[in-house]
Write a protein that binds this DNA or RNA. Structure first.
Ligand SMILES: [Mn+2]
Ligand SMILES: [Mn+2]
Ligand SMILES: [Mn+2]
Ligand SMILES: [Mn+2]
Lengths: 218, 218
DNA sequence: ATTTAAATTTAGACAAACCTAAAACTTTAT
DNA sequence: ATAAAGTTTTAGGTTTGTCTAAATTTAAAT
């Protein structure tokens, strides 16, 4: 498996949200920042290797093997992100690009040992679940903050947008995973939220609210 | 810089033992397990980038920039080897292949943080020196065990051959870096050595003796 | 000093991963 | 139902890094 092949599998998995949906050529091209014609070439190759189901003009989906490979790469990506944050003191907005490289290192032993060193983490620094060796992970029952109603209370457990910009914004405003968030009020006019985060009052725009995941506690 | 370009620079550095020697095309081809014609192609490219001095039929040498890049890759390789042994409990015969991959990860910050995590090690698990950020390292004053005379005494500080076979042989015979070695006798007939290693008597062939580095203590 | 052998370079080809432009297919709108 | 628009594929190229086979240069041997 080449790096490129791995990246395509990962892209298909992410676009399809792990399901068996049919993914369009254009969607993959966009995600990969490449051209549709390049995607077609690659789909033929991955199909030849039985990693995707591909029928001309009909889109692609991952085969069981393709899916398990995608999950293995995602596992590596997220474990490395944890490593960078926990062991090397990277901040959560700096880890993604390095993990994009590290995820392609081939060594079963390496990743097992890393998993152990990190004490078998279940989530990465952005709240995304880390598949185990067999590709299994439990999806957390979480909602976007924007879906909550007034008086709902929950724990901040993840980010939808994990761009450096957004993460730095959260840092600046001292919002972090694990924080307790209560919806005090919703502003109909602009969709902004009045919150209490760890006992401090806060107002966030609807854009922010629709990129934060919370687990409702009551 | 591509992985391949990095590997060529490293190969030239290793063949030339860090000096400014003129390296032959064939030597590089052998080291890289590739064909001389491929080497020629690459030398043209590296020359174009001012990383090597290349004149047709006259061999190549690293430029100052090429050398500092080679050293940076070697630094990464060896730091990763230390990490694998110290933090992930790899044994010294398992680290090289993984380090060959990890050495190409591009992130200045990553390698600085790794260096810190490992507490700025000076030597890798095989006794090879780790260049600092500026490419500086002190060469240990060491000799091959085979060069010692009867009654010479020293500390085992490195291996010349760091193949898995040799390292496993040393493990099996409980010979490790840091051991104190004394030459009790040399056998003229087959060049074998009668040793005392950590108070235990030992006989090793000349092949073994010419692949172990020791630092003479008296 | 030639001839022979070895080392090195050139010429031409190939696979991987990408591209642009044009053709073919599907979907949407009239 | 047909035309227009959008999507996807094909055709033909490019770059990187490799290869084989042939030509060239250098080194060794007679
Ligand atoms: Mn990431
Ligand atoms: Mn992540
Ligand atoms: Mn090594
Ligand atoms: Mn080493």
């Amino acid at each position: 498996m080449t790096h490129s092949e791995e990246n395509y599998l990962k892209a298909i998995f992410h676009i399809g949200k792990g399901g068996a949906n049919e993914i369009s050529t254009n969607a993959i091209a966009e995600q990969m920042e490449t051209k549709p014609s390049s995607v077609t070439d690659m789909m033929k190759k991955l199909s030849e290797k039985n990693l995707v189901n591909y029928k001309k003009y009909k889109g692609v989906s991952l085969t069981a093997i393709g899916k398990s490979m995608a999950l293995s790469i995602i596992r590596k990506h997220r474990l490395w992100e944890v490593f960078l944050v926990e062991k090397l003191d990277f901040s959560w907005d700096e880890v993604h690009d390095v993990a994009e490289q590290l995820e392609h290192i081939e060594s079963e032993k390496l990743i097992d040992k890393l998993d152990k060193l990190l004490d078998y983490p279940k989530y990465d620094p952005h709240g995304d679940p880390i598949p185990d060796k067999n590709g299994n992970f439990k999806v957390m029952d979480k909602k976007l903050l924007s879906e909550l109603s007034v008086n709902d209370k929950g724990i901040c457990v993840g980010v939808k947008d994990s761009s450096s910009q957004f993460l730095k914004f959260l840092d600046k405003n001292k919002i972090a995973l694990g924080d307790i968030i209560e919806v005090i009020d919703k502003e109909d006019f602009d969709g902004s939220f009045q919150l209490k985060i760890n006992a401090n009052s806060f107002n966030v725009s609807s854009q922010i609210a629709s990129n934060l995941y919370v687990q409702i506690t009551e």
